[in-house]
Amino acid sequence: MINALANPHRFMAFSRWAAPILAVAAVALVAVGLWLGFTAPEDYQQGSTVRIMYIHVPAAWISMFSYACLGGASFFALIFRHSLADAAARAVAPLGAAFTFLALVTGSLWGRPMWGTWWVWDARLTSVLVLFLLFVGYIALRASIDDEAKAGRAGAILALVGLINLPIVKFSVDWWNTLHQGESIFRAGGSTLAPVFLLPLAIMGVGYMCAFGALWMVATRAEVWRRRASSLALQAAFS
């Protein structure tokens, strides 16, 4: 599948249909998930603020996932000099930064009523903040290099260095301090979340994933068109 789509023409033909389908699926799933989430009973401890979970937790999942996508795309761009992978890496960085920012902001809004503070220097919060800074560093590096090809390779090296460093950051920050609740959904012995909360969360997770996929495809398409436009402009200037 990935090999077939590595051909830019096939990718453009595929994503032309896949992106809108994913977008419709995302809207439908997020609508259903929000409806179920907001009609679910209130949590006996957290009251109605528990509903922030449906926005916050999937955003945090996607933020990690998008860095993995950035690392994977950078790997293909660097090793195989694949220009579509480079376009995908460039496109995913602002998306990942946006989802990470969303996770940080909703987490802060949730922390205020629950923990009594907007921000705590807790392990998970800090590692997500570092993730955000890594995205910012990647975007800043690419933006400051004029030559497109050089910007792509420098960014790919930085993304791979960050990909190796990220698990260590996660480990070091966990080791340093922890207050955030432990993993409660993907854990040995089953989820500690009641099914009435778990179902809307799962729907929201899939919905976010569809939204991320649709946005990534659209952004990659835009990047491919932008490159074609700039090469056409260059040809026109020299002819």
Binding site: V130, L133, L134, V136, G137, A140, L141, S144, I145, D146, D147, K150, A151, A154, L158, V161, G162, N165, I168, V169, F171, S172, V173
Partner: peptide
């Protein structure tokens, strides 16, 4: 190096890596 506007850019790239 490729950007030729070093200084602050290096700090923005490097600081998150210095966490561990």
């Amino acid at each position: 190096l490729a950007s030729r506007r070093g200084g602050l850019l290096i700090a923005v790239i490097v600081l998150p890596l210095l966490v561990p």
